[in-house]
């Protein structure tokens, strides 16, 4: 596929949640206008419940009920989405889950095996997801997201509710996978440290209805991201913490 440098363009005039029963229509997002460079890793933060997941769903094309437009910048976009929960098929093994997302006729056994190995699931490849720990299920979901070699990878708090060491290991794994094969990533999180450690750009949404309140580059090299103090210093700069 020839590299295309047109950015991903997201323009949301307004997005409301439909009225349910007694409750009136609820405005969620307003006046969001984003241009996202190819190959950038964008961390999106904001208070919980402010509409970050809705934003991702709109970009993913799962939610079409809004006014505005999303232009992927490519005629045929390969998309991956890592949801808050792993969303693996419980009746298929780890390996089958990863293989299944490949388009028909593109059965790259080698790539599947290599990714399973890289996320450390070689011993569990033939296991059913529900027999694995949540951490391992998320690693399987991560492998699944990367196996299709996406042009755009959406991640919705994929490491939430994991214990610290597990989440940290998964972050390192994500950095490694991403630096091997850079792709555009939109990473939603409410964890400021995580946002700075992973992202090349920070977008903060806030308000009710929510809109973009900050859009800043994060200046860290891959090596610097492994150092906690450097990340903390950058976090203070980006978030203007005192």
């Amino acid at each position: 596929m020839a590299p295309v440098d047109r950015p991903l363009h997201v323009h949301i005039v307004e997005k409301n949640f439909a009225a349910v029963g007694q409750r009136a229509e609820l405005p969620v997002l307003r006046n969001i206008d984003l241009s996202i460079e190819r190959g950038s890793f964008v961390s999106i933060t904001g208070p919980s419940g402010c509409g970050k997941s809705t934003l991702l769903n709109i970009i993913a094309g799962l939610d079409k009920d809004f006014t505005g437009a999303v232009d992927s910048g490519e005629s045929e976009l390969r998309l991956s989405y890592m949801f808050q929960t792993p969303r693996l098929l419980p009746w298929r093994t780890v390996e089958e889950n990863i293989r299944l997302v490949l388009p028909d006729g593109e059965s790259s056994d080698e790539r599947v095996r290599e990714l399973i190995e890289r996320v450390g699931l070689s011993d569990a490849a033939t296991a059913y997801p529900e027999r694995l720990s949540v951490g391992m299920q998320r690693r399987a979901a991560l492998a699944r997201a990367f196996v299709v070699e996406p042009d755009l990878l959406l991640m919705d708090e994929p490491f939430v509710s994991l214990d610290d060491p597990t989440a940290e290991a998964l972050r390192q794994l994500l950095i490694e996978l991403w630096s091997r094969r850079p792709t555009t990533v939109l990473f939603v999180t409410h964890d400021r440290f995580e946002a700075v450690m992973l992202g090349t750009r920070l977008i903060r949404v806030d308000g009710r209805p929510a809109t973009v309140v900050q859009n800043t580059p994060i200046n860290l090299t891959v090596a610097q991201r492994r150092d906690r103090e450097t990340v903390l210093a950058e976090r203070r700069r980006v978030f203007q913490e005192t």
Binding site: A60, L62, L79, R87, L89, L100, V101, R144
Partner: peptide, 27 residues
């Protein structure tokens, strides 16, 4: 709905969705 969205994101198409997502849930 979660699995249906997953199938939609990864472009399963109707046959793959039926075979791997829908029918196993109905088993």
């Amino acid at each position: 709905r979660d699995l249906e969205e997953m199938a939609q994101i990864y472009q399963f198409g109707w046959w793959k969705t039926l075979r791997h997502v829908t029918l196993p849930q109905l088993a």
